[in-house]
C-alpha cells in the first residue's frame, strides 16, 4: 500500500516571501500547526509553523550543531523572547521555515510513511520523486483514515464471501 492513497491533496500552503506575521495569522485562521512552503513552480521549499518559529526564537548558541544543551540558567528572559518574536514577525517565511524536511514519494510504502511520522512527527510532505513538486501531505489522520477505509473494505469482502 503506497503513501499515495493516504495523501491529502487539498492543503493550505504559504509562499516563501510572505511576512511571518501574515503567515502566522493564516495558520491561526485555518487552525493548523504547520503549512508547506511552496515556490511559484509548486516545488516544496520547507515547512512553516509554530515549531520552526519557536526554534528561530532561540539563541544561535543553542540551535547550532553541538550548541548548548541547557538554557535553564537564563533567568527572566521573557521580555527578551517577546522582543525576538516581534523581530521574527517582520521576517519572511523563508527566513524561519524548516528547510531540512523529511519527505515521502507517492510510491513510498505506507509503512515507511508511518515509521517516518513516528520518528519525525506529522505531517510529512509528499513530493514527486523526479521534480520535487509538492503533491500533498501525509498526516497521522490521513493515514488512519486510509487504514480505516481498508479495514472496512476487508470486512465487506469477508461478509460477501
Amino acid at each position: 500500500m503506497p503513501c499515495e492513497t493516504a495523501t491529502l491533496t487539498d492543503v493550505y500552503t504559504v509562499k516563501p516571501n510572505m511576512k511571518v506575521e501574515e503567515a502566522l495569522a493564516y495558520i491561526h485562521e485555518k487552525n493548523v500547526r504547520t503549512m508547506p512552503v511552496i515556490d511559484v513552480d509548486n516545488r516544496l521549499l520547507g515547512m512553516f509553523g509554530l515549531a520552526p518559529l519557536m526554534k528561530s526564537l532561540l539563541p544561535v548558541a543553542v540551535t547550532m550543531e553541538e550548541g548548548l544543551q541547557k538554557l535553564g540558567f537564563v533567568v527572566g528572559a521573557g521580555p527578551g523572547i517577546a522582543k525576538r518574536l516581534k523581530k521574527a514577525k517582520d521576517k519572511t517565511v523563508a527566513d524561519v521555515m524548516q528547510q531540512d524536511v523529511i519527505v515521502v514519494y507517492p510510491a513510498t510504502s505506507l509503512w515507511e510513511g508511518i515509521r517516518l511520522m513516528v520518528k519525525y512527527g506529522s505531517p510529512i510532505p509528499v513530493v514527486e520523486e523526479e521534480s520535487g513538486k509538492f503533491l500533498g501531505i501525509l498526516s497521522e489522520q490521513s493515514a488512519m483514515t486510509d487504514l480505516e477505509n481498508m479495514l472496512a473494505e476487508l470486512e465487506a469482502e469477508e461478509q460477501l464471501s
Partner: peptide
C-alpha cells in the same frame, strides 16, 4: 543587568 540575573547553578546538571 540581564546577564547578572543568570543562575549559574542551573547550568550544573
Amino acid at each position: 543587568a540581564h546577564l547578572l540575573r543568570y543562575n549559574a547553578r542551573e547550568a550544573l546538571t
